[in-house]
């Protein structure tokens, strides 16, 4: 019974993190927040890998005390391979996250917004402008016919505490 409960708690936690992260990536419109959701999904995947290597009544894969002299030990140990993989995965994750944030800074510098739909909007307008095509999104088009409602540009970057 307890084993079953631990099973559901651990796997439920890992899967919950993955689901929350993916839903965040899909639904959020602020690109800064999308990176945070991506970090959460990555944490869930790491937890899943570590759970896969877990064994009951096992100790950490580090030899201490008497185990150092009496090898091979009789004590069961958890699988070290997933742990080594997760170890590298976490460090890579923070590097990739920094790269993504640098790109977000670049996007904000060029488009002055963090809203995904607004960025898409302005990017299309830029492409149309530079290729000399009269844009579908330009002022010739009646305002009501646009495919998307006019997204908010105000308060996209609320930092909290200074409102």
């Amino acid at each position: 019974m307890t084993t079953n409960l631990i099973h559901w708690l651990l796997y439920g936690g890992a899967m919950g993190l993955i689901v929350i992260g993916i839903v965040g990536v899909v639904t959020l419109t602020n690109i800064f927040r999308i990176i945070l959701a991506l970090v959460i999904a990555e944490a869930g995947a790491n937890l899943l890998l570590v759970i896969a290597g877990y064994r009951f009544d096992a100790i950490a894969p580090i030899l201490t005390g008497q185990a150092l002299s009496a090898m091979p030990t009789t004590q069961i140990m958890v699988d070290p391979v997933p742990q080594a993989m997760v170890l590298t995965s976490i460090v890579i994750g923070v590097g990739v996250q920094a790269l993504a944030l640098a790109l977000v800074l670049k996007v904000y510098k060029n488009y002055q917004t963090l809203d995904l739909r607004e960025i898409h909007h302005r990017m299309l307008a830029d492409i149309d402008h530079s290729s000399g095509v009269i844009s579908l999104l330009s002022e010739e088009q009646p305002k009501g016919e646009r495919p998307l409602p006019e997204p908010e540009t105000k308060n996209v970057l609320n930092s909290g505490g200074e409102k």
Binding site: Y11, Y54, R55, D79, P80, V81
Partner: peptide, 16 residues
Amino acid sequence: FILGGAPMLIGEAILQ
């Protein structure tokens, strides 16, 4: 999924 009883071939060999 199995918790705590998954077969670990490489892991077992490495631990030994």
